[in-house]
Design a protein around this nucleic acid. Sequence first.
RNA 1: GGAGAGGUGGCUGAGUGGUUGAAAGCGGCGGUCUUGAAAACCGUUAACCCGCAAGGGUUCGGGGGUUCGAAUCCCUCCCUCUCCGCCA
Length: 427
Amino acid sequence: MLDPKLLRNESDLLAKRLATRGYQLDTSRLSELEASRKQVQVQTEELQSRRNKASKEIGQVKAAGGDIEPLKAEMGEVGELLKKNAAELEEIQAALLSMQLDIPNLPHESVPVGASEDENVEIRRWSEPRVLDFEPRDHVDLGEGLEQIDFAAAAKLSGARFVVMRGQIARLHRALTQFMLDLHTQEHGYQEVWAPAIVNAERLQGTGQLPKFGEDLFKLEGEHDRYLIPTAEVPLTNLVADSVLAMESLPLKFVAHTPCFRAEAGAAGKDTRGMIRQHQFDKVELVQVVHPDASYEALEALTGHAEAVLQKLELPYRVLALCTGDMGFAAAKTYDLEVWIPSQNRYREISSCSNCEDFQARRMLARYREGENKPQLLHTLNGSGLAVGRTLVALLENYQQADGSILLPDAIRPYMGGVDRIAKLPG
RNA sequence: GGAGAGGUGGCUGAGUGGUUGAAAGCGGCGGUCUUGAAAACCGUUAACCCGCAAGGGUUCGGGGGUUCGAAUCCCUCCCUCUCCGCCA
């Protein structure tokens, strides 16, 4: 959510900046609602004031043994009027709020202006794709050839966009999550968190998935407003919802491994082959909660923490600064990490690291206090460190050998019980 | 899932319809005293919204209702605790 004061007073400027990310702010409707809100609110509060005074008076008169009937009759009318006004005010405020919840974050001034992903800006590359003397196979062929990835079984169990892994590949998947968690807790200073994969609607509104993007989520049946998380960003960031943190406790750095669930409603026909886009996948997520002055420094650091995973696994990647038109709803600035995928002969997204500034903090009322000052909104950041399924895909494809086996990078071998190669299962 | 008890300010905890935004204690802050500290004593100490301000409004788990007036009464939802059942 944007600062309502800015929205009131600088709506033209905001409209201009929001337009760069393809959002059209309806400033006339906004100012209309704002004007009527002000008028009705002042009226309502006047009526409330009258009622409060009269009620006090009635109390006094009654205590003194006087006649309160005339006063009561008079207040009956005020009550009617107040009821009407309050209902109207509530309606206006609901409309205003729903409008505010719909507006994406403002892009930071350093974000390149552009309409689509084509205008993202490459910041740097790390390492070079291996040159193969054979035609690379994709992870589906590799995994099925090794008899350790099974999409047919997953389709039988659950439908499209699910996967079953077995044997050493299943183990590798687990090894990768352990490796990532250890790296971030031991070398990058994150606190390991285990959190629910089911959250309520209020928490999804806090991070920005709701109310606008409900169709991307799996909602649980039943009487409660609960959803499967699309990312651990939701539970991790919302840990600080409705709280006032002491300065000394900042920054908070959380890392968690969770399953992530996405309906992929708008992705029909996209990445239908393989494990790139699944309804369920595992992710190791990094979240930082920081002082506003420190958030851009933190974004660089957090991006570096995600990069470290790829560097240790010796997987070639590049870093993009997303342009205004390609950024997510809550982000003020985002770096994407893209890893080399040999079978596609291009880089594919494996991590997205964002500074949301106070956008999420305002929605979930997450604040800190400096000395005796009033509580101020925090800044929140999140990034994948990394998407485990996609890391597995990159590893299989980049380390494939001519015979279809997978030679494992040094960093992961201790997590594989010393195994250095994945080959076909015996028997 | 069944039965019961609860949810009040930073914390503990009073308060069952009327000058209660809320007693008291603790904690915090300021002061007196002291070489300094402790103790004691005195004072002070909620958040949010509208407004340039004066001021006004909202908030006693959430929502709804009754009433001139609700922390207090009614309905409903959520959460916590105890016991029972079931269970990884």
